[in-house]
């Protein structure tokens, strides 16, 4: 019992961790980490908190931030028509949609390709600062923000699919053809990296920090 005490005294009393328990992240089984290092039911490695959560989250996040620049500056698609080549970045593609009368789709693509990735990057920074420095919101709100980040993440892949389909269909040799650009690669990488960042982040750390602060004040 001493080992369990040492292991768990740093956690707030309401948490499962303070009793050396955790919910298996794969199957949900309540597992004692004092007795097991793998879930006895499904065999997943069990930890009180995701290992290196904040470090990994920052690493993925910074990589995503760096790639966000080429993702928006490089063309994701090049259209060659009768010898003339037109390059489109993500933003110019949205403007093109808007100008050709499809304002509704322009809004959808704008949300999926601009608002979601940028919002995700910002939200993760807010969450990380809330754990490491001071909370930038009440815990239930931050929890909701985290859930939202996990929910919307994959919708940014929209533009990558559009480019893939256009490049496959529009191949009329000299008359007109569409080529994927390096921007699509950078953009796809941003989507994957922000998803990995969100998966690395352990939302339980927000509640740990909150309660530790509340105890310090009491």
């Amino acid at each position: 019992m001493n080992a369990a005490g040492d292991l768990t005294q740093s956690f707030p009393p309401e948490s499962a961790a303070s009793r050396g328990l955790t919910g298996c992240h794969a199957c949900g089984q309540v597992v004692s980490v004092v007795e097991h290092d793998h879930c006895p039911r499904c065999g997943s490695a069990v930890h009180l908190r995701k290992p290196l959560s904040l470090t990994r989250c920052w690493a993925f996040l910074i990589a995503a931030l760096i790639l966000y620049v080429p993702a928006n500056l490089l063309p994701i698609m090049e259209t060659t028509s009768l010898g003339a080549t037109q390059s489109n970045t993500i933003m110019s593609g949205i403007i093109l949609l808007w100008n050709t009368g499809s304002w509704d789709l322009a809004v959808i693509v704008f949300v999926a390709s601009m608002v979601v990735p940028l919002g995700k990057l910002l939200a993760l920074v807010v969450l990380l600062i809330s754990v490491q420095r001071k909370p930038l919101g009440a815990a239930p709100q931050l929890s909701r923000l985290y859930r939202l980040v996990e929910l919307v993440g994959k919708w940014s892949m929209l533009d990558v699919y559009v480019v893939a389909l256009l490049a496959t269909l529009v191949r009329f040799d000299a008359f007109m053809s569409v080529h994927a650009g390096h921007g699509a690669l950078a953009f796809g990488a941003v989507v994957v990296l922000t998803m990995l960042a969100a998966q690395s982040f352990d939302p339980r750390l927000m509640w740990d920090a909150l309660q530790r602060r509340a105890q310090g004040r009491a």
């Binding site: 956690f11 309401e14 948490s15 499962a16 961790a17 009793r19 050396g20 328990l21 955790t22 919910g23 992240h25 949900g28 089984q29 309540v30 597992v31 004692s32 004092v34 007795e35 006895p40 815990a139 929890s143 985290y146 859930r147 939302p203 339980r204 927000m206 509640w207 740990d208």
Partner: peptide, 19 residues
């Protein structure tokens, strides 16, 4: 702590509340 005593318990995967 045996496995059986945890049978009706559930841990929140987001805030770690044992309930």
């Amino acid at each position: 702590m045996s496995q059986d005593s945890n049978a009706n318990m559930i841990v929140c995967h987001e805030c770690d509340l044992l309930q």
